[in-house]
Amino acid sequence: MTTKEALFKYILRIGDTNLILGQRLSEWTGHGPFLEEDLALTNITLDITGAAKSLLEYAALVEGNGRTEDDLAFLRNDRQFFNVQITELPNGDYARTIARQVLVDCFDFYFYQELSKSKDETLAGIAQKSLKEVTYHLRHTSAWLERFGDGTEESHNKVQLALNELWQYTNELFEMNEVDEILIKEGIAVDLNVVKTKWEKHISDLVEKSTLIIPQNVFMQTGSRKGIHTEHLAFILAEMQALPRMYPDAKW
C-alpha cells in the first residue's frame, strides 16, 4: 500500500464515522424529548455532518480520480464504508443515544487533540476545528449521562442497559492496521493506544460519577476496518442514498 492509498483509507474511516453518525442522529431532529434538547442534538448533528463533508472532500482530493465528496457519500455500497459499527446502530431511546454519544464524543475529544498535531496540514486543520466543537458536545452529553445515571431508578436502568449493550462496540474505535502503521511513520496518523489510555480514564471517571458500572469481560465486536458491518448500515445507506441513486443528475 502506498502512503497515498493509506491516507485515502484513513480519511475515509474518519469521514465515514462522522457521516453515518450524523445521519443516524439526524433521525432525532423534530423528535427530541423537548425543544431545547431537540435543538442541542440537531446542532451536534450539524457539526458532525459538517466535519464529514470536509473530510470526504479531502478524501476525494487525495484519491484524485475525479470523484467528489457526494460520490463518496452516495455512490458507495456498505462493504466500501469504514465507519465504526457503533455509529450505525439504531438510536434506541434517548438514554441509549446519549450513552453512545458520550463514548464517541470522548473518543473524538482525545483523537482530535492528537490529530491536531498531524504533519498533514489539512487533517490537522479539520481536527483543530472539530476539537472546539466536540468539547461542547462532550460537556453536553456528559451532563446527560450523569443526569440519567444519578436520576430516577428507571433512567438509571435504561442508561446502564445501554452501556451494557454498547460496550462490545468500543474496542473498534482503537483498532489499528497497516493504514495506521504506514501513516504513523509519516507523522500523519494518531497512535490510537495513546487515545485509548486517556479515553479509558475519562470514561471510567465519568461512569463512576454517574453511579453506573462499566461492563466487564465483554466480547468485542470487530470488522469495520475491513468494511464489515452490522445489518443496520445497509438500511441507513438505502435511505440516505435513495435520491441521488434514483435521480443521478439531481442538483441541490
Binding site: 431545547e36 435543538l39 442541542a40 446542532n43
Partner: peptide, 13 residues
C-alpha cells in the same frame, strides 16, 4: 444557562 446550544450553531440559550 438554558442550553449550550441555541438557534444557530454559534449561539447558546
Amino acid at each position: 444557562l438554558i442550553s449550550q446550544f441555541g438557534s444557530t450553531a454559534c449561539k447558546a440559550l
